[in-house]
Design a protein around this nucleic acid. Structure first.
Length: 567
DNA sequence: GCCGTTTTCGGCCCGACTGTTTTCAGTCG
């Protein structure tokens, strides 16, 4: 699938045009890029069907460039722009305070093409002599270059930040009238740059004192009456803003984003002759909404949009015509369908996992220890599985309010076969299959490999289908659409692995799978009882993927699941 | 370059902040 590649090209064209000072076109290219990026179908398919212009923001000219790229692997317009402005935009614009206009000036006047050039002209004090630049700016840029250099991957995993952010909210709650997370963490994005918190308080100064004085604060970065920023131990930055009660809703809407979502919402406001900002929705001077989010959306003729959907991926249109999905709720999930115990590489016994799952309110769990050749993860053989079955049977008798499915996680070998016999797989209720080795095959081979596993007569679920580890390992190369088609045909379920650095399937793939009629399971892949709480992250991905209750099998009752796992 | 129940031409999101200026351009979220 070349959607991401094409989006990247369009973004680069947008940046280069912006540097050239071209008006409006950059926005058009970015809009198209953004829509292509979050497309849930393969753009090449659309092209073959002659439906490129069905993509919002893609007109005749951009469609032409997509066609050119798909046919020749190049876009002449981009080549020309690169020749004209041979600068490393990606790293230069990563420098805070440096935008396209300055990049252009720096290139034209001082020949700055990359970070090293930029650092040099700053150190040589040549930047400050340019018109419109000055000493302060030069110093700031120099500082920010260092930040870019050391930053690289400074985003934090949702799963590790969310508990801390929630704890801060709880800590401040007794002293404020209203409080909520905002920003990407409220939208439950898989990684978080910084945490935004919004509150209403009678005594803002006192709340700011509490906030900046928290034990978990390493450094206070800024402190004011309406906004304070701190850095916690561990490096994450948290901003607290205090707003007027009458504006809480519009401020929450504004600070929750995403930016792209807000742009569209504001356009709708304009169509109505209104103006929307963080202080409220205004008709002329008169404020007509702003106290809570619901009334803001309502005044614009829209349904309230759950934060997880606010990515400008079609939720605006749906909210306008009242067709938003009824998203699966966090409390709809009644169990966890992947976890490991001491039988393979887990830290706890089956019974300990059962007790912890009960605490979380689960009605069922699946024990899915490794089997077969994955010796490093303690893969069980057929004898072990039989022994384990006996233990599970005993525990089932002891706990009548939670059901234990006996499953296994089998490895998909290089040729697509599983590394265990059918006689072992027949022993258990549930078979997960997943790739744990040879991650670097080409797309064609890898797709064939996974599809072969999907076609296996005993496989129920493909676990962590793309094998990505966020910020560490790229996803395996898969023709995801072909994989999903095979899954659909063979009634195989796709997993959302809820472990914080996996979240695999991701949101976009989840949406795509659901649109193709595939069922989704959520599994934490817990290797200790403490990991079981991560199931919420799986629900978050499901919601970001527009999943309804019926799409997620963890919402089913035990009888329905038994039927589903009959293979 | 795209788009349209106010338009097929004339628009394109908004406000705050910073650093540089003396009324504003550029950047950010």
């Amino acid at each position: 699938m070349k959607n991401q590649e094409i989006a990247k090209i369009l973004y680069e064209i947008a940046d280069l045009l912006e540097i050239e000072g071209v008006e409006f076109k950059p926005r058009a290219y970015r809009r198209a890029a953004q829509n292509i990026e979050s497309l849930s179908v393969d753009i090449e398919e659309l092209y073959k069907k002659g439906q490129l212009d069905k993509i919002p923001g893609v007109g005749k000219s951009i469609a032409e460039k997509i066609k050119e790229y798909l046919e020749t692997g190049k876009v002449r317009k981009l080549e020309e722009l690169r020749k004209k402005i041979p600068v490393d935009i990606e790293s230069l614009s990563a420098v805070e305070g440096l935008g396209p206009r300055m990049i252009k000036t720096l290139y034209e006047k001082l020949g700055v093409k990359n970070l090293d050039d930029l650092e040099r002209v700053c150190k040589e004090r040549r930047l400050r002599r340019l018109k419109g630049f000055g000493e302060k700016l030069e110093r700031k840029i120099l500082e920010n270059i260092q930040l870019v250099k050391q930053r690289q991957q400074q985003r934090f995993l949702l799963g590790f930040v969310l508990p801390e952010a929630n704890a801060i909210v709880e800590e401040l709650k007794p002293y404020v009238k209203k409080i909520s997370l905002a920003g990407s963490i409220r939208r439950r994005k898989e990684t978080i740059g910084d945490v935004d918190i919004l509150a209403v308080a009678d005594e803002p100064e006192y709340v700011m004192d509490l906030f900046t004085g928290m034990k978990r604060v390493e450094k206070v970065l800024a402190k004011g009456k309406t906004k304070s920023s701190v850095r916690l131990y561990g490096g994450i930055q948290v901003d607290l803003r205090i707003v007027e009660e009458e504006s809480f809703g519009s401020a929450l809407q504004y600070f929750t984003g995403s930016k792209e979502h807000n742009i569209e919402v504001r356009k709708i406001a304009i169509k109505h002759g209104y103006k929307l900002n963080e202080y409220g929705l205004f008709k002329g001077e008169k404020k007509i909404a702003g106290k809570d989010e619901e009334e803001v959306y309502k005044a614009l003729g829209m349904q309230w949009i759950p934060p997880e959907l606010r990515e400008n991926r079609g939720e605006i249109e749906a909210a306008l015509n009242g067709s938003l999905p009824k998203l699966v709720e966090y409390e709809d999930v009644k169990g966890d369908l992947q976890m490991h115990t001491k039988w393979s590489d887990g830290a706890n016994t089956i019974e300990e996992m059962v007790q912890e799952a009960k605490k979380l309110g689960h009605k069922f769990i699946a024990i899915t220890d490794h089997v077969g050749s994955l010796k490093i993860a303690g893969g069980m053989d057929e004898e072990d599985v039989k022994e384990q079955a006996k233990e599970i049977e005993k525990i089932r008798e002891k706990y009548d309010d939670i059901y234990i499915f006996h499953g296994v996680e089998a490895n998909i070998m290089k040729d697509g076969s599983l590394d265990v016999s059918n006689s072992l797989l027949k022993e258990v209720d549930l078979v997960l299959a997943s790739v744990h080795s040879a991650f670097r095959m080409d797309e064609k081979e890898m797709t064939k490999r996974v599809i072969k596993a999907i076609e296996h007569e005993y496989v129920d679920i493909i676990a962590h289908p793309t094998c990505r580890i966020i910020q560490k390992r790229e996803p395996i190369k898969l023709d995801i659409e072909k994989v999903f088609e095979a899954a659909k045909e063979n009634d195989v379920i796709m997993e959302i692995n809820a472990y914080p650095d996996r979240l695999d399937l991701n949101d976009i793939h989840t949406k795509m799978a659901i649109e193709m009629g595939i069922k989704i399971s959520i599994g934490t892949d817990a290797h200790s009882k403490e990991h079981l709480k991560f199931y919420e992250l799986g629900v978050a991905v499901a919601r970001r993927g527009w999943a309804e209750k019926k799409d997620i099998i963890n919402t089913y009752n035990i009888e329905e699941l038994r039927k589903l796992f009959q293979k």
